[in-house]
Design a protein around this nucleic acid. Structure first.
Lengths: 218, 218
DNA sequence: CACTGTGAACTTATTCACAGCT
DNA sequence: AGCTGTGAATAAGTTCACAGTG
């Protein structure tokens, strides 16, 4: 049943399942049903079963899914098993430093291997155990070492140029914190994290006694 | 055409449109067509027109949409016009500090008004111009001042309790950076930012030549 | 007997295509 | 002429419901 084109929306749920299965495992359960997992995640049991079935039959009828083995299966589907994914980080401002200090990357199997910045004040400095390199040397570094992942944590104005450099250097997956829209060539993935957009969309749902802006009429 | 239930997926695109319209405005264009905007965003023109039509008819046939007025319309739909949305921040570790220093919130119309933490070392200290308050005093603060937004930037173990406190205090929109799944009551919105999940889902699409298993060097 | 795996039914979202303004 | 606004057509995604199985 392999080899069908799998919807991106399914791929995006896999890390969620894997993350929760890690939590379930640490609580000591050996098996979990699609219903049990769905309840924890706010996802329907049918959806979990369908998602997993794109990749094979991992469950046991009558019992559910073995927690740790399903988690490993998912990580293997995501090409995350038994390895550490190397990343470059561009930008060592406050956000970049916070990211460098974040333990979650390593737990998830990701590790920053090099750190770049454009600020002469930063270049050459040691930051959280990394020596900050000149972003001008990024193209050469990428030519030598094929790193597939990058995190962009530079000021908005600089982001587009940095992304160009990363794409030209063969980086295939870019996580950007800059609030700008960008297109990238086929074969490159760009995901953005923009907390302001998240807040803005939540604002719509506020039951706000203060303000009811009328839009109306045809 | 008012008062139909509007799909969440539409609401989530509105901040994207608003953000890009801001960029278009700063480039000096007065009008933009759905095709022009769609090209910049990687969204189809029909989708933009349909999304906007849930709320009214904001365009001019033959010319397109007036950039600044459409942006204001969208911000008004999102209940973001002409005001600053107040937020509390819980957690002043590295991430919390980075968020406090981020100018993007104010640009988007959001402002942190109070800062809380559980660490006795931090409580009472001044951080980026805020005095860190004891998270134990958060319930009382929320009782007095009706703040609708909160950002959770605490360690994973603490997140669930903090979210409970926020919900109990009447906060309606929570942006959490903790990598845990949580359900919240109706009427409360919880959005998570988890960079690791983003990276993991991108990993699926990598070319296999990048699959080299990292050698154990520890 | 409690669960998965899965086609079929249904629901939601996107695109098409064109009438209708400016 | 060039665009929006919008119903109709299509595609994508989710849930249902149940047969199959350990």
């Amino acid at each position: 049943m392999s080899d069908e084109e799998i919807p991106d929306i399914v791929i995006r749920r896999l890390p969620l399942y894997a993350r929760e299965l890690g939590a379930v495992a640490s609580e000591g359960s050996e098996y979990i049903s699609s219903e049990g997992l769905g309840e924890r995640l706010g996802v329907s049991p049918a959806q979990i079963r369908k998602d997993l079935n794109y990749f094979g039959s991992f469950g046991t009828r009558g019992r559910g899914y073995q927690v740790t083995s399903l988690r490993e299966r998912i990580r293997s589907i995501l090409k995350l098993n038994g390895r550490v994914r190397e990343m470059v980080l561009v930008g060592v401002g406050q956000l970049g430093r916070a990211l460098l200090g974040y333990r979650g990357f390593l737990i998830g199997g990701f590790e920053v291997v090099r750190v770049f910045d454009a600020d002469p004040e930063q270049i050459g400095q040691a930051v959280v155990g990394y020596e900050v390199e000149d972003v001008a040397s990024l193209p050469e570094f990428l030519r030598r070492s094929k790193v597939a992942f990058a995190i962009v944590a530079v000021p908005t104005e600089a982001a587009s140029t940095v992304i160009d450099t990363l794409v030209a250097g063969g980086v295939q997956a870019i996580l950007s914190y800059a609030p700008i829209s960008r297109s990238v060539p086929d074969g490159v993935r760009l995901r953005q994290i923009d907390p302001v957009m998240e807040l803005e969309s939540m604002s719509y749902y506020l039951d706000d006694q203060f303000d009811a802006v009328v839009e109306d009429q045809i």
